[in-house]
Simulated assay, not measured.
Amino acid sequence: MGTSDADRIRLLGRDLTAELMGQVSFAELAYWMVTLRRPNPGQTRVLEAVLVALADHGFTPTAIAARVTYLSAPDSLQGAIAAGLLGGGSRFLGVTEDCGSYLHEALEAYGGPVPSDDAGWDALALETVRTTRAAKRFVPGLGHPVHKQGDPRTPVLVGIARDADCYGPHLALFEAIGRVHDQVLGRQLPLNGAGVCGAALADIGIPVPMLRGFALLARCAGLLGQLAEEQRRPIGMDVYLTVDRNATYVEPELDN
């Protein structure tokens, strides 16, 4: 991947200082390092949009974990960031990977040529949701605890992907699921931002097993911002005291 000697640093077969620094964006470099392909301008634009979309979402568990860890160990910025990143799971951030993987598996199981119109995508989406429901599984990317009437990131990212000529089968199937899932689930749920990010990343060629890594890359920037704010306007102690002072102790039921 990279190497160095006394005079030069090489990365991806290029001279770091002469060919990469000042000429390649960080998002472009991350894509290149993971896929071993340099992204085109459209792919870079979509990736940049995804990283911005996933950077921060307020006082999520990942942000709270980072701030409280920083309260406990202000000498360990890396520990606070790590604490926040470790919380990237099936409910927060991990949905990006879960949704991208779900869509990818559905497309592989379908196997045929991709539909050419919305009606074809809707039929495939309906069958996909029915199969998921029959297996008693959740459809990842549906619903949001805050944006119950629609995640504002979803239409914007879809629009960027279309404009960048990066709208592919994962986004097409995801949008179709958004149109038809209520026929199976009995209620209308919004397509959330983490899910649409997974679909977009898959469409620009990010390997499915690496999708969560890009969500974590984005959130790392958000956690840096949270911790910078914690230094300026600390709330970690308030969080700790609120929990500690308001918790009700319940005696454990012990076996005699």
Rank of each mutant, 00 (worst) to 15 (best):
111 G>V: 10
135 A>Q: 14
137 R>C: 05
91 R>H: 13
68 V>C: 06
92 F>Q: 14
139 V>P: 02
108 E>P: 00
130 R>S: 12
152 P>H: 11
107 L>P: 09
102 Y>E: 09
43 Q>Y: 08
91 R>K: 11
52 V>G: 01
139 V>I: 15
123 A>D: 07
147 H>A: 12
127 E>F: 00
122 D>A: 02
60 T>S: 02
52 V>R: 01
73 A>K: 01
102 Y>P: 05
99 C>D: 08
84 G>N: 06
127 E>C: 01
152 P>W: 14
117 D>E: 04
104 H>K: 06
131 T>C: 05
91 R>V: 10
79 G>N: 10
111 G>Y: 09
48 E>H: 05
108 E>W: 09
126 L>C: 01
48 E>S: 04
96 T>M: 04
74 P>I: 12
130 R>P: 03
103 L>C: 07
88 G>H: 15
59 F>G: 00
153 R>I: 06
83 A>Y: 09
55 A>V: 04
125 A>G: 13
41 P>D: 08
83 A>W: 06
91 R>A: 10
157 L>E: 03
152 P>S: 07
142 L>T: 14
81 I>E: 09
133 R>H: 15
77 L>P: 09
81 I>C: 06
157 L>N: 03
99 C>G: 10
46 V>I: 07
118 D>R: 04
132 T>L: 05
129 V>D: 04
136 K>P: 02
151 D>F: 08
146 V>S: 04
147 H>D: 11
101 S>H: 12
141 G>K: 07
75 D>S: 13
83 A>F: 12
160 I>D: 07
131 T>I: 00
153 R>Y: 04
86 L>F: 15
84 G>F: 11
60 T>K: 00
151 D>R: 07
98 D>C: 01
136 K>A: 15
131 T>V: 03
93 L>W: 06
149 Q>E: 15
69 T>W: 11
45 R>D: 14
